[in-house]
Design a protein around this nucleic acid. Sequence first.
DNA 1: AATATCTTTACCGAATCTTTACCCTTTTCT
DNA 2: AGAAAAGGGTAAAGATTCGGTAAAGATATT
Lengths: 218, 218
Amino acid sequence: MGKTIAVVDDDVYIGNLLEELLTGEGYRVLRAYSGTEAALLLEKETADLVLLDLMLPGLSGEELLPRLQGTPVIVLSAKAASSDKVRLLTGGAADYVTKPFDSAELLARVAARLRDSGRKSAVLSRGSLRLDTVSRQLTAAGEPVHLTRTEYAILKLLLENAGRVVAKSLILEGIFEDTPDCTESSLKIHVSNLRKKLREADGQEHIEAVWGIGFRLT
Amino acid sequence: MGKTIAVVDDDVYIGNLLEELLTGEGYRVLRAYSGTEAALLLEKETADLVLLDLMLPGLSGEELLPRLQGTPVIVLSAKAASSDKVRLLTGGAADYVTKPFDSAELLARVAARLRDSGRKSAVLSRGSLRLDTVSRQLTAAGEPVHLTRTEYAILKLLLENAGRVVAKSLILEGIFEDTPDCTESSLKIHVSNLRKKLREADGQEHIEAVWGIGFRLT
DNA sequence: AATATCTTTACCGAATCTTTACCCTTTTCT
DNA sequence: AGAAAAGGGTAAAGATTCGGTAAAGATATT
């Protein structure tokens, strides 16, 4: 499970410190000592997170930032000015930590950023609904609700796409593994049963039909 | 498509300040003044982000935090101690900002957190029209407008070619998948209905006929 | 084998959408 | 100008889809 973190800093001392800190936490660390090297490195290897110093030879951290779309970046810098922070956070940085930094706080921020990038959080929630995908248990406004396999599969799919319209055909595909024989006509019964259970639990209507298309979880 | 942010703070002055700041940026703001109120509020309404003060009556911010799994939380606190930051960031907070905070930096951090929780909502917009092609929802001058399948297909096509003339035959082709039997005669009814709905929503005329050819969205 | 649980089929009324039919008005062409 | 063709729109008929109940069929459990 060891995530990979790229440390981009030309200061060898700080770089080593970071590497020790991170490997000590079980992360795999990639090193780069210039902006250009980082660019090359990240074309070959995939990192889950980048710790980026701003003042770098070759390509500055600020220039590198826009090229790292998709990977969360924590900017490390001695510049404490609010305007710098704003510019970089707006420019795509996931976080901004000023040097000198506190080791424990940095690690916590690293963990926080990794957490929401790999947001396969075991719990899907929306409004009053909380679906634990590990124990497969649902609560609606605190009330536990028992779900059948098919209902669970449908609700999970809807929760994963909360707010979006999910086409009926897409649902059927998505739950095929659990319920191969489900057709559009039986799907609507499952939805109906699901609605009933949710309604009895928290009194709300969650699943909305989009005429001719499918369903949406509001 | 303004994101919704919940401001949880018992200090009315700070809360108002935050609300002004956020609404000024186009966010929709929900307020709660105690931990328990926040818990209730967030069961009813769904927020995209929560700004959470730590010292709250009822349920403290720290106690509330674990219940907000799934929604990113920025903790606001006067406590600057590294140990506090670490505990909260580890405990599920997405970010930690110490009071007094810099407005611009806070906004930047809000945007950063929203960005990576951000669902890729592909929005087609033109003038006062905004069509979210993921949720299939249209707003005209802020007003939500309900569209039927065919109307949605037509409007989407027109928006994708906003300003250009789209031939009737091309529209019929484009919406064939949704409405195979649509002919030129029924097309004009759909256009008529569409115009009516838009007119009722924002009072403007958007769809212009190009004689003998087709339609254009202005 | 009997029982409980889940899934599917059958069916109905209600709601929603699409099309047809039929007005009138505007534009184009002779 | 006058006829033919196209646009704009209303109202009602026709076709789908929805939401739900009840019961039959399938699957798992004891």
